[in-house]
Design a protein around this nucleic acid. Sequence first.
DNA 1: GGTTACGGT
Length: 657
Amino acid sequence: MAQLPPGFTTLSTLTTEPLKTPGINVIAMVCDKMEPTTTRKGDITMKFKLVDPSTQDTVSGGNGFAARFFYSQTMADTPKIAQLGDIIMLRGVKLGVYDGNRVLMNNKGNTQWSVFPIAGMPKGEYAVTYMGGKQELPSMRSRTTTTTSISLVEKKYILDLASRFDTLSHAFTRGAGSRVQPAHDPLAVRVSAVRGHDLDVIRVPAVRCHDHDAIRVPAEKRPASGPELNLERRKMQRPGESKKFRLISDIQDYTFADLCVEVVKKWEGDFGCELYVTDYTENTLLLYYKNPSESKDDFGRDGDPYSYTNGFKAGWPGPWGHRVLKVVCKPPHADVANAKVEVGAHVRLTNTKIRLNNVNMLEGTLWPDQRYPGKIYITVLSRGDLVEVQDIVERKRQYYATQSHEVEPVRDSATHDTANRTKSALKRSKKKAKKAAKEAEALAVKEAELEMALAPNQHTRCSDGTIPLSSIATILDSSGERHKEVLPNGRSLILPFVNTNYRAKVQVLDFQPALEDFAVVTDELEDDSMDLSIESSQRWEWNFTLLLHDAKKEGSNPEDCILVNVGHPQAQFLLGNDMPDPANLREQSMLLNKLREKMYILWGNLEEQKAAGADDMPSNRPFECCLSEYGVLKSGGKPENIFDWERQYMLHGLTIL
DNA sequence: GGTTACGGT
């Protein structure tokens, strides 16, 4: 551990220090906190708990050393702790007793604080650059009466403390009985632990970190920064925001629905264009398609799903079960369907009229818009429709993960016509060996070429090289293998998320929203602003989303892609210290240009390609980065309902040099 | 508002 800065006290010393000692200085990690509340007298009070290396192995230190601060009237002075794990530096606090226990208390105007958010903390080698003394630590928020800067020794100590997050955070799990409400932390902050409950009696969603044994329980609170904002913005863009958006599992007779679906089959009939579509959800009011193993008697003993061997008609390409809705497109939609929609495409169908037909099965029809007869209700979804496509693709992955390998479709066939697929399958079966050898050779050449073209990006740095590399498919874990939890009663469930970190070698495929909107205004007021005008009270934060895919993969197929949030601290870390604070990018063209230049290093010609409407793969180089998996409570969800939590990913540890 | 999960136009 780094040297304790002169004038500072360790937490263990405080257990023997005489009471009412004034002028105590402490640097420690926040392991528990309660949001500021108002006392009966009308004062503001807040409580938090601290750990440092001196307390981590002691029984009494296990729950952290309590601090209780009081303020009269205004919240403006209270320490702004973003999440558990933040490092707080306190000067001029005093020792008091509260409820019979020692606590640190503030001392009116004499107490100064600085908070160093763990989320933006440089790690590993990168931390060294901060030790030179010139660079300020990122995202520092403070309330000091003087403008004393942080000394080199203090900086070192703070960074060292932050680097011990994994060890110190074990203390976070012991606060289960505390009345203090732990904050939810997207970046794997440990909260109270429960284990061995039946699902029915689990009060809070339990998540298990794959590298630890303890079950972790996200607390009630939503993340205070980036992730929450990002979720909110994503929600705005989700198909679910459309009032009529329905999953196929939710459609009902005599309604109109907006659907986001994959086209499984297309038929240009006399009465319009029929689209057979799925979003990989089930609705028992749809026709049941038998899967190949169920219908083996229909096609001969071997259960050959595509009838490679007997030349009979091809079977249904899947998905099977009650998952496919027939939608009849009337003019003018039929013309668009015929011309633009291919089997395997993802489409949005607006205002689909849902009816039970004469054999009591649901089907959809797209009729002309009554007010604007030329209006088209079909939109082919593309890379730009990240969320919609991702949702379908993710459900597809999960669906096929439960199917046997024999019926799993060839990945890259998703964009091909079904008929072509079955025909080529037939051919393949005849010339299999010869073709396979040729293909393998071609593939090897192509991969070698790709290898040359995709040398790693020399202009990025990943702060943590210790986490083993994972593929995107592994991280997404569509089979649920790593998210499976077996309960003591033998039942098992797949957890919506686990708090854990990964490292991956990836490339950027897309981003969201437009670059001009990478900075968003937050509601939070700039608390030390003396200027009361609206503009100066607006606080801007970075907040955007990247679509990443495994390095070396080609094709614009969105499978094996991962949507990754970049919150404010992560973006600050990404963009580095020479990037000014975020502001309205639609007004600050200099800042926008600077951001554009930075991001170009990461994503190459992606922005230009998007602007040109090109759907080709962008040209950019792979890089390594850390991704953390976390959960957020769905809008309107109940924290105690495990399935009300949604899995999300956050980029971190990446810096563009 | 045509008829049924094919039809292979």
